[in-house]
Simulated scan of single mutants.
Amino acid sequence: MEQQDTERPAWAPPEVDIDTPSIARVYDFWIGGAHNFPADRELARKVAAGNPDLPATLRANRAFLRRAVRELSALGIRQFLDIGSGIPAEGNVHDVALAAHPDCKVVYVDIDPVAVAHGRALLADEPRAAVFQGDLYKSREILDAPETRRLLDFGQPVALILAAVLHFVPDSDDPLALVGQYTEGLAPGSALVISHAGAEEVPRAAPEAAEQYRGAVSRVIWRDNRELAALFGDFELLQPGVVRAPLWHPDPTDTPDPSLPMLAGAALKPAR
């Protein structure tokens, strides 16, 4: 077992328990971040032991997100609403967006109070980004939150990011209608970015990756290309459509692993 840290870093507020694992910090460890503690790393290794591909899949998801933000910034989008963001540590949406255009604004939302507490500490000196606690199912509260209204102008295009979050929404909760609660009021030219556990064809038995991740978080629903494409509604998919996350606009220096079970895509809202 790893020895417990004796010093609390500035990004870990006093009210946060650093000796009890947090799934937000476990995720941070899996993607190669530095915002985690021994208890988080111990749980991360335990969960990943049964599925070595899980950390690589989540790293591919984060890499896709960075590429999507760069692509959308190049198309002129300057506002980003990231729901289910986790800890907004270095290399996240605000870093990529602000590196492209210093006038970008980013709002992060997560249901995990630990992720939000760490995020507030990390973003304390960044007026162009904010984070607050919110529930994906309560769209009105998120869209009307003071942080959202302060930073985002919904009269202009906004990129709505739902990265690795909709696979926790079962069909019985109508994920298409849930997404629509956020997208119906977005201006033409806005974007929708989704990544999701899945494959071109989903096996009948729950994949081991889903079972392992479920033990640490909650039930994971796999969907196939057709099902994920349907969640974009009437938004127009950008090329190459819905594909495995590593294959979506890979960087020239990338060596994408097309076997990783994470689908992804981005789409634009057409003019009425």
Rank of each mutant, 00 (worst) to 15 (best):
T255C: 00
P261F: 04
G215V: 06
V242L: 14
R244D: 00
D173R: 14
M262S: 03
L237H: 01
A205W: 07
V220S: 13
A191H: 02
G265F: 08
Y182V: 12
P175Y: 14
R226L: 14
P246N: 03
A216H: 08
M262Q: 04
S172Y: 06
E184T: 15
T183V: 15
G233H: 14
F168Q: 15
D174Y: 09
A230T: 04
F168M: 10
S218G: 12
A210Y: 03
A264G: 11
V202D: 06
S195P: 00
T253K: 05
V220E: 02
A187L: 13
L186A: 06
H167E: 03
F168C: 05
W248F: 09
M262P: 00
R204D: 12
R214C: 02
P203A: 12
N225P: 02
A197M: 06
V193D: 07
A209Y: 02
D224V: 05
R244L: 07
P175M: 11
D251S: 07
G198I: 03
W222I: 00
D174I: 09
P170C: 11
P203I: 12
A229Y: 12
A230K: 13
G189P: 12
L260C: 01
L176Y: 08
S259C: 03
R214Q: 11
P188Q: 10
P258G: 04
G185R: 15
L237Q: 05
S259E: 12
T255F: 02
D257E: 07
R219M: 07
P207N: 13
I221K: 09
F232E: 06
E200L: 14
Q212F: 01
S195R: 02
A229R: 15
L166T: 09
G241C: 11
G233C: 10
L238Y: 03
S259D: 07
G241V: 04
Y182W: 14
A210V: 09
P170T: 09
L263R: 02
Q212P: 03
P256A: 02
A199M: 11
L260R: 02
L186S: 13
E211T: 08
D224K: 12
A229T: 01
T183W: 11
R214I: 00
I194C: 11
P261I: 04
P256R: 07
Y213P: 01
P203W: 01
H196F: 12
D173S: 14
D234G: 15
Q239E: 15
A210I: 04
P175D: 09
E236Y: 00
P252C: 06
A264S: 10
E227L: 12
Q239K: 13
A191V: 07
S259F: 01
Y213V: 05
V217L: 08
T255Y: 00
D174P: 09
A197P: 01
D254N: 08
E201L: 13
S195E: 01
A245Y: 01
V202K: 05
L238Q: 11
R219A: 08
T253L: 05
D254S: 00
V242I: 15
V220H: 11
I221T: 13
L228W: 11
R244A: 13
L247H: 04
L238D: 05
D234P: 13
H249S: 09
V242Y: 12
Y213N: 04
P250L: 03
N225W: 11
I194H: 06
G180E: 06
E211I: 11
D224H: 06
Q181D: 13
W248V: 01
E227A: 15
R219H: 10
A177I: 13
D224S: 05
H249L: 11
A264K: 00
S172D: 13
G180R: 14
A264F: 05
D174K: 15
G265D: 07
